[in-house]
Simulated scan of single mutants.
Amino acid sequence: MSERTVAVLAGGLSHEREVSLRSGRRLAAALRKVGAVVLEWDVDAALVERLRTDPPDAVAIALHGGEGENGSVQAVLELLDIPFVGTSARSCRRAWDKPTAKAELARSGLDTPDWVALPHTTFRALGAQAVLDAMVDRLGLPLMLKPDQGGSALGAQVVADRADLPAAMVSCLAYADTVLAERFIVGTEVAVSVVEDRGEPRALPPVEVDAVGGVYDYTARYTPGATTFHCPARLDATVLAALEEAALASHRLLGLRDVSRMDAVVDADGRVQILEVNVSPGLTETSMLPIASAAAGTDLGELYAALVERAVERG
């Protein structure tokens, strides 16, 4: 790439700070290899002044959780007219709130596991046990519990026994005020990353997740050796095509831009059940976007360099 100055934003104050720093370091190294001048900036009270006094050609966001994915940082960049790689602030907000995104996906005809989202106040006002009983009667067991906002599977857990639900709810509520309870789908867990070439989204090869413990939780995601990845996923061509189409449809439907990642489960009938869509995919040594990019024969630095150029052109 031409000698662009790119500020890589990583860190922040979310629960996913350490993962974000790892993503940021890898992205910075990849961009330097293709000739960029890279500034590695944390997201703190000094950021706005840095952007005003030393504006880069573009910003690449390697933030996970909180302000990095809910549209807050993107909104500030838009206010300052700083070009950045990634989804606009408004569309970040749509994807960040899992129940909202799932509702949009379901309305469009895409499959997503049945769910209910309930705030902490509902359990307190109506009685936790009564609400939990109604939840199980409707969705059955096992259930996947997760915070309604957030990533890296923080607070997410599978509950197979009704007696374990209260403790699991308390654990989940440590990360958010609202719990998303989702029918647990048994099947093959797959992630499909989408990147844009000259404005047209394309799906990278689907990555199959084979977690040693059977659940792709925080430990399985970020502990080397805890998960085996297969790219492309070990599924037949028809299912692989359906996965790619679902990822592209989700990317377009939610108004995402430049890069995204769809997490899904392929059930016993071969249907793609979309779990969520991420606007800031991880870039660590165990993250799936770099795995898919390598499988497609695309260098990570070159991929992001092209996205930086698009961001500059938009700006």
Results as ranks from 00 to 15, higher is better:
59 V>R: 11
250 S>F: 01
156 A>I: 03
169 M>P: 08
112 T>I: 07
208 E>L: 03
205 P>E: 02
200 E>I: 08
293 S>H: 01
196 E>H: 14
284 T>I: 09
221 R>V: 15
170 V>T: 15
112 T>V: 01
255 G>S: 08
206 P>E: 03
88 S>D: 12
196 E>F: 15
50 R>C: 09
55 P>C: 04
44 D>A: 07
254 L>S: 14
174 A>Y: 06
215 V>C: 12
35 G>N: 02
283 L>R: 00
87 T>Y: 08
193 S>D: 04
23 S>M: 06
313 E>F: 07
208 E>F: 00
197 D>M: 11
195 V>Q: 02
4 R>K: 09
263 D>A: 07
215 V>F: 15
98 K>T: 04
284 T>F: 05
171 S>C: 03
215 V>M: 15
42 D>W: 11
133 D>P: 12
149 Q>I: 03
56 P>T: 03
267 D>Q: 12
209 V>F: 11
247 A>E: 08
293 S>C: 08
71 G>Y: 04
94 R>A: 01
27 L>M: 15
266 V>K: 11
28 A>V: 10
259 V>D: 15
273 Q>M: 11
77 L>T: 06
208 E>H: 08
213 G>P: 09
78 E>S: 08
279 V>H: 05
243 L>N: 02
201 P>N: 12
99 P>W: 07
104 E>W: 14
87 T>A: 09
309 E>Y: 02
186 V>L: 06
16 E>N: 01
197 D>Q: 12
137 D>T: 09
100 T>G: 08
183 R>N: 02
190 V>T: 13
180 L>T: 03
240 L>G: 06
108 S>H: 15
185 I>W: 08
5 T>S: 13
245 E>W: 05
11 G>Y: 07
104 E>A: 14
168 A>T: 10
240 L>H: 04
286 T>V: 13
217 D>C: 07
290 P>L: 02
220 A>P: 11
137 D>H: 06
288 M>D: 05
306 A>E: 12
119 P>E: 01
127 G>A: 04
150 G>A: 13
298 T>Q: 02
253 L>V: 10
231 C>M: 05
3 E>P: 09
311 A>P: 01
289 L>K: 00
190 V>R: 10
245 E>T: 14
156 A>Y: 03
271 R>T: 14
281 P>L: 09
231 C>F: 00
75 A>T: 00
132 L>F: 09
173 L>H: 07
261 R>T: 10
205 P>K: 13
53 T>V: 01
30 A>M: 07
119 P>V: 05
87 T>E: 05
102 K>M: 13
